[in-house]
Simulated scan of single mutants.
Amino acid sequence: MYRVIGTVKSRAFRVMWMLEELGVPYNVMPAAPRSEEARKYNPLGKIPALVDGDDVLTDSVAIMTYLADKHSAVTAPAGTPARARQDAMTLWLIDELDAALWVNAKHTFVLPEKLRVSGLTPTLHKEFSRNIETFAGMLEAAGGDFIMGDQISLPDILAVHCFGWAFGAQFPAIPEAVKAYTKRLRARPQFRAAQDH
Rank of each mutant, 00 (worst) to 15 (best):
M1Y: 07
V4R: 02
K9R: 15
S10K: 03
S10F: 12
A12M: 11
F13L: 15
R14C: 13
V15R: 02
V15D: 05
W17R: 07
W17G: 03
L19W: 00
G23P: 03
A31R: 02
A31G: 02
P33C: 06
P33L: 04
E36G: 08
N42V: 03
G45Q: 03
K46H: 10
K46G: 02
A49F: 06
D55F: 06
L57K: 04
D59C: 00
L67W: 00
K70F: 10
K70Q: 11
S72K: 13
S72L: 08
R83D: 05
A84Q: 09
R85M: 15
T90L: 10
I94L: 14
D95E: 15
E96H: 13
A99P: 04
A100N: 15
L101N: 05
W102V: 15
V103T: 15
V117N: 09
V117M: 15
L120P: 06
T123C: 11
T123L: 15
K126A: 14
E127R: 14
S129D: 03
N131A: 07
A136C: 05
G137R: 13
G143R: 07
M148D: 01
G149F: 11
D150A: 07
D150L: 05
C162I: 05
F163G: 00
W165T: 06
A166R: 02
F171C: 01
F171D: 00
P172M: 07
P172K: 12
P175G: 05
E176H: 13
T182S: 07
R192N: 06
A193E: 06
